[in-house]
Deep mutational scan, measured.
Amino acid sequence: MSIQHFRVALIPFFAAFCLPVFAHPETLVKVKDAEDQLGARVGYIELDLNSGKILESFRPEERFPMMSTFKVLLCGAVLSRVDAGQEQLGRRIHYSQNDLVEYSPVTEKHLTDGMTVRELCSAAITMSDNTAANLLLTTIGGPKELTAFLHNMGDHVTRLDRWEPELNEAIPNDERDTTMPAAMATTLRKLLTGELLTLASRQQLIDWMEADKVAGPLLRSALPAGWFIADKSGAGERGSRGIIAALGPDGKPSRIVVIYTTGSQATMDERNRQIAEIGASLIKHW
């Protein structure tokens, strides 16, 4: 067993022997301040990774656009098919120029040779490549099948209805392509620590998230040296922004954090800054 596999296998073990965790309302004060600064709703939840206990939450059962955070769930569904012998990570998928959609920095470079399922998941999570996500959605049967996968996990809230990039439209009061912070946090925890996926697939999923290259201005910008984070960000229309993450000190994750916002007129930089400040408060009061 590799060191990384050992780390993920012992996530519940280490967490069980940690000192009790206590909620700190100071972080919620910052979440509410972010709402004021952005002029928009902000949803927040913080779960203990081992027990699933909610440590703090704000608007945990209000719907927010998922945006690209759905790509972690998508690759979880792909990995479940791999575990069941219905898919192979090494299978190569070929596609054409007509398949390319807006923001496809990886797939646009491989029109000639195609990409493997493993490479597509890596591109979808680490670079948020939209064509990679659409190609992977095709392998599982489309958005409705991802929703069905989530329902089978016990998540009857999260739903995907459309493809990239239309799913980022974020129309107010439109339930399409949305989740709730509580539902997303619980589902992410199941994917990373539950028995739904094999140990190898859980490790692969967290490795992809740990290698995320496009979430630097968010929670990662607030992390002290030595902290662990595996995350996936999302951005959408109407001032929408979000991030889902597993993080913790001492090089291992111990909490799940989900943050979503929508309806702001603020710039992307300002949305990023507010999420980073929430992260800084979380870490300060850990």
Rank of each mutant, 00 (worst) to 15 (best):
H5T: 10
I11M: 11
F14N: 02
A15E: 04
P20G: 05
V21G: 08
A23N: 06
E26R: 07
E26I: 14
E26T: 14
L28G: 07
V29P: 04
E35M: 04
L38R: 06
G39M: 10
I45Y: 09
E46L: 09
E46T: 13
E46V: 09
D48G: 06
D48T: 05
D48P: 02
L49F: 14
L49V: 13
I54F: 12
L55V: 11
R59P: 00
E62I: 06
F64R: 01
S68W: 00
G76Q: 01
G76V: 05
A77Y: 12
L79T: 02
Q86K: 12
Q88V: 11
L89H: 05
R91M: 06
H94I: 15
H94W: 13
H94G: 10
Y95F: 14
Y95E: 01
S96H: 11
L100R: 05
L100C: 06
E102K: 08
E102Q: 15
P105W: 04
V106D: 07
E108R: 11
K109Y: 15
M115T: 05
V117Y: 03
E119A: 10
C121Q: 02
A123M: 03
I125C: 09
M127F: 11
M127K: 08
D129T: 00
L137F: 09
T139K: 08
I140E: 04
G141W: 03
G142W: 01
P143D: 03
P143G: 06
G154A: 07
H156W: 11
V157A: 12
R159Q: 09
L160Y: 02
L160D: 02
W163I: 12
P165D: 06
P165M: 07
E166M: 14
L167C: 11
D174N: 06
R176I: 06
T178L: 02
T179M: 01
T179K: 00
P181T: 05
A182P: 06
A183G: 07
L188T: 09
L188C: 09
L191T: 06
L192G: 02
G194V: 07
T198L: 10
S201Y: 05
R202V: 09
L205C: 03
I206H: 08
W208S: 03
W208R: 01
M209W: 03
A211D: 15
D212W: 02
K213P: 04
G216M: 10
R220D: 03
R220S: 04
S221H: 12
L223Y: 03
L223K: 07
A225S: 13
F228Y: 13
I229C: 10
I229Q: 02
I229S: 03
K232L: 00
S233P: 05
A235K: 02
E237I: 10
S240K: 01
R241H: 04
R241C: 04
I244L: 09
A246M: 15
G248W: 02
G248H: 03
P249I: 06
P253Y: 03
R255K: 12
Y260L: 11
A266S: 13
T267A: 13
T267I: 09
R273I: 10
Q274W: 15
I275D: 00
A276Y: 10
E277A: 11
A280F: 10
L282P: 00
H285E: 10
W286R: 02
